[in-house]
């Protein structure tokens, strides 16, 4: 299997994702978006960064690049897709997942470790954890506040689409533990299928033991679980 990490102009977490996946024994390659999706793609990462300089809205331009039509098609066929940070913004802008990640409540760029609580353990991305587990994963974004209208959010919650919520060290969701003002503390969610997920925190930055903590490994192992 080969996971394609799609590089847009301004992506900058593509190599981190490649190294993290390879550390886990998952074959991965960086794909320039204009080259299209390779035929042997068995997974897709939409990496973090600042695609197209965040012009118009974070992720708006990349979401409308031709390769995203191929990504949506692959997602419909069950190919696992993971969007991280800017990739999460691209995922929402391209309708892979619902809602929008917009300006932080602080109106500032925030780069800090946060805690997230695993809301479901029956998706590929969270199979390595148990529901209620608390992970420490860093964020690095200015537009990470999850926004969707209240009625739709209630439906998404009923459909069990929320994958991670910001929380404190003990797993409690509190206003203080929510770094960006996301509605209902949403840090990540799945799309129409559980094999499509986006999250604002960076699991690839807490995967390599040489760099420190490894709480994010389980998220990336989702590519292996999804294709078992």
């Amino acid at each position: 299997m080969t996971v394609s990490i799609i590089r847009f102009g301004g992506s900058n977490c593509d190599r981190d994702a490649e190294r993290a996946l390879e550390h886990l024994g998952i074959d991965a390659e960086i794909v320039w978006h204009e080259d299209g999706l390779p035929e042997d793609t068995t997974g897709i990462v939409l990496p973090g960064g600042f695609s197209y300089g965040d012009y118009l809205r974070a992720g708006a331009m990349a979401a409308r690049a031709p390769i995203m039509e191929e990504v949506r098609e692959a997602a419909r066929e069950g190919v696992p897709v993971l969007g991280v940070c800017n990739g999460a913004q691209v995922g929402c802008e391209s309708s892979l997942t619902e809602g929008a990640f917009t300006t932080n409540e602080s109106a500032r760029f925030q780069c800090e470790p946060v805690y997230v609580r695993v809301e479901r353990d029956d998706t590929p991305w969270t199979r390595a954890y148990d529901e209620g587990d608390v992970l420490e994963i860093p964020i690095a974004h200015a537009e990470g506040r999850y926004e969707v209208d209240d009625d739709r959010l209630a439906e998404l919650e009923d459909e069990d689409r929320i994958l991670f919520r910001y929380c404190d060290e003990d797993g409690e969701t509190t206003p203080e533990a929510n770094p960006n003002g996301s509605k209902h503390d949403v840090a990540g969610l799945v799309g129409d299928r559980d094999t499509v997920a986006v999250l604002m925190p960076h699991p690839e930055r807490v995967t390599l033991p040489d760099v420190g903590e490894t709480d994010g490994q389980g998220v990336l192992r989702g590519f292996a679980y999804a294709t078992e």
Binding site: T103, E105, S106, A107, R145, E147, G181
Partner: peptide, 12 residues
């Protein structure tokens, strides 16, 4: 922004 959506930049 739709009415009711927080606008931190405008508030600042």
């Amino acid at each position: 922004l739709k009415h009711g959506v927080l606008d931190p930049e405008a508030e600042t």
